[in-house]
């Protein structure tokens, strides 16, 4: 996952009411914390739960990574995005702006 590509989006739109929450689906705590620190990611990073507390697959049915959902101010899921490649930032920015 090109997670660092989300940071500029967060920096650009956070003061207009945009938030980013990322969840490590595979609970690779050491790798994840090192990655987040190395790339200076400042948005909220959570870790998937174990067994009954697992949410990534049981609630969201996600088994391919990265998968993202964009949620509007009313809490409705308005868009899903599979994969994250160079150039996807523009598409996401467009979608974010349409909801702000």
């Amino acid at each position: 996952m090109e997670l660092p590509r989300l940071q500029p989006l967060y920096d650009t739109y956070s003061d207009q009411g945009f938030n980013v929450v990322v969840v490590d689906g595979k609970r690779q705590t050491d790798l994840a914390t090192k990655f987040i620190e190395k790339h200076g990611l400042t948005y909220t990073a959570l870790e998937n739960g174990e067994d009954d507390a697992e949410v990534v697959n049981s609630i969201f049915g996600v088994s391919s990574y990265p998968t993202s959902f964009l949620i509007d101010r009313e809490g409705r899921v308005m868009y899903s995005h599979l994969g994250f490649e160079a150039g996807d930032e523009e598409k996401l920015a467009e979608e974010i702006e349409s909801l702000l």
């Binding site: 996952m1 009411g17 929450v21 990322v22 969840v23 990655f35 964009l70 101010r73």
Partner: peptide, 29 residues
Amino acid sequence: FTLADYEGNTHEFQDLADGNVTLLAFWFP
């Protein structure tokens, strides 16, 4: 849903989203 961050603090997603436009991204390092 409720999940913990890397400091062990638990968060309710609804509270994090709370009237914001929110990108919820699932990844792994």
